[in-house]
Design a protein around this nucleic acid. Structure first.
Length: 308
RNA sequence: GGAGGGGUGGCAGAGCGGUCAAAUGCAACGGACUGUAAAUCCGUCGACUUUAGUCUACGAUGGUUCGAAUCCAUCCCCCUCCA
C-alpha cells in the first residue's frame, strides 16, 4: 500500500507513539522519521527512549541518533533534514511517518517557520556576556527599547526568549516583531498531513512513565549518563538536559541515593508529559485522536489506513 | 529518671501579641510557547461565596488580653544530650 500522504503522530512521552509508528510503517511500507528533540542525540538512546535496534530492523528509521551530545540541534536544522527525508521517502513511494513529542518541531513542519537568518555564534556569545555581566533585567530593558511589543509579551524572567529576541535584533537590525510579520515559509501544504494525536489520561501515562524509567535504569541509563559525564560537556547543552541526565548525574556525584534520583526523574517526566499535553491539546488539531496509550490495538492502524 | 529543643497549610520551612488565611521553596492544578523546546516562562493554590466578605484553621484543652500561630497553665506526641 502506498500513498503520498505524510503521517504525523504526536503525543506526550510514553504514550506509545513509536510503537504505533512502527506498526504503521510495516503495514504501509513506510519510513519512520523522528520528530523528537532528544532522540536525535546518539549518546542518550536509553534515556531518550529511542527505538531499539530490533525495532529499527523492522522498518527504516530516520533522524535518530544523528548528533553527538556536544551538538546543539534546533528546529530549523531538524526541519530541513526532515523535509529532505520526506521527499526522499516519497520519491521511493514510501509513506513518511513523522513521530515525536516535540510540539514545536511538529508545528514548524505543519505550519511553517519564519525566515529569520541563523544567529552566528559571536552574537550569541555577545548576548551571553551581556547577560552575565549586566544581568537579565538589563537585557530586558534593552529589549523594551528595541522591541517594545515583544518585551511586553514576554515575562521579564524569561531568559530564553529575551535572549533570543535580543540576539535577532543585534544580528539582523530588525526586531522579532518585524520578523513575525513576514509570512511563514511552508514546505508542504496542510492537506498533505494525516495527523494523529495519542492523548492518554494522565494517570495511565504516569504509570507508564514510571515503569519505563525503571526499565531505562535496568537497560543502562546510569552507564549512559556516566559516559556523558566523562565527555565533560556543559550542562547547558540540550542532550545534558534530557530527562534523567541531571538526576542520575546527581546520584553519580554522590549527591543523593539512586532511589531519589529515580524518583526525581520520574517526577520530571510526568511534569514534562503535562506540558506536552497542554501543547497538543491546545494547538495541535489532529484528525485522529486516541485517548489511550498505544499498546497492541490494531484499531488505531485500521482507522488511519482507511483515511489514506 | 535528669537537662534541653520542638509540634504551623499535601510536604519542607519562616513567623513568636495586631498590618496572618499565615513568608519562601517543593508538590498539585491550569496556561503560554515562532531557531537550546525533555527548554523557558506565567497564573491559581483552606472552604464558601466572591473585585468586598463570611466561616474553619498554626498538636489538645483551658486561660491572660480589646486582640493570640505568637504569652501562661495542664495534657498528648516527637527529637537530642546526660544517666
Amino acid at each position: 500500500m502506498q500513498t503520498s500522504e505524510i503521517i504525523i503522530i504526536a503525543g506526550p512521552t510514553a504514550s506509545g507513539k513509536s510503537a504505533l509508528a512502527l506498526i504503521l510503517a510495516e503495514e504501509l511500507d513506510g519510513i519512520v522519521i523522528n520528530a523528537d528533540s532528544m532522540q536525535v542525540y546518539k549518546d542518550i538512546p536509553v534515556l531518550a527512549a529511542a527505538p531499539s535496534e530490533k525495532d529499527r530492523l523492522r522498518a527504516p528509521h530516520k533522524l535518530y541518533g544523528m548528533y553527538d551530545a556536544s551538538c546543539r540541534g534546533n528546529v530549523v536544522d531538524w526541519l530541513n533534514l526532515c523535509q529532505t527525508e520526506i521527499t526522499a521517502a516519497q520519491k521511493e513511494n514510501k509513506t513518511p511517518i513523522i513521530v515525536g513529542g516535540t510540539g514545536m518541531y511538529i508545528e514548524a513542519l505543519t505550519k511553517g517557520v519564519t525566515p529569520i537568518p541563523e544567529t552566528p555564534a559571536e552574537i550569541r556569545q555577545t548576548v551571553d556576556e551581556i547577560l552575565k555581566e549586566e544581568g537579565l533585567s538589563f537585557l530586558y530593558k534593552r529589549l523594551q527599547e528595541t522591541d517594545p511589543e515583544t518585551a511586553a509579551r514576554l515575562s521579564g524572567n524569561d531568559t530564553t526568549r529575551i535572549r533570543r529576541a535580543y540576539e535577532i535584533w543585534l544580528h539582523t537590525g530588525k526586531n522579532l516583531t518585524y520578523w513575525h510579520s513576514v509570512p511563514l515559509i511552508k514546505h508542504f501544504p496542510s492537506q498533505s498531513f494525516v495527523t494523529v494525536y495519542i492523548n492518554p489520561p494522565r494517570e495511565a501515562l504516569d504509570i507508564r512513565c514510571r515503569s519505563r524509567f525503571d526499565a531505562m535504569v535496568e537497560n543502562g541509563a546510569v552507564e549512559e549518563v556516566q559516559n556523558l559525564i566523562a565527555k565533560n560537556l556543559p550542562d547547558s547543552l540540550p542532550a545534558m538536559r534530557a530527562l534523567g541526565v541531571q538526576e542520575l548525574k546527581a546520584y553519580l556525584n554522590r549527591e543523593c541515593p539512586l532511589s531519589e534520583a529515580v524518583e526525581n526523574a520520574k517526577l520530571h517526566t510526568r511534569q514534562y508529559a503535562k506540558r506536552q499535553s497542554t501543547w497538543f491539546n491546545n494547538r495541535f488539531d489532529a484528525e485522529f485522536k486516541y485517548n489511550a496509550c498505544y499498546g497492541e490495538d490494531k484499531i488505531f492502524v485500521d482507522d488511519i489506513k482507511k483515511a489514506l
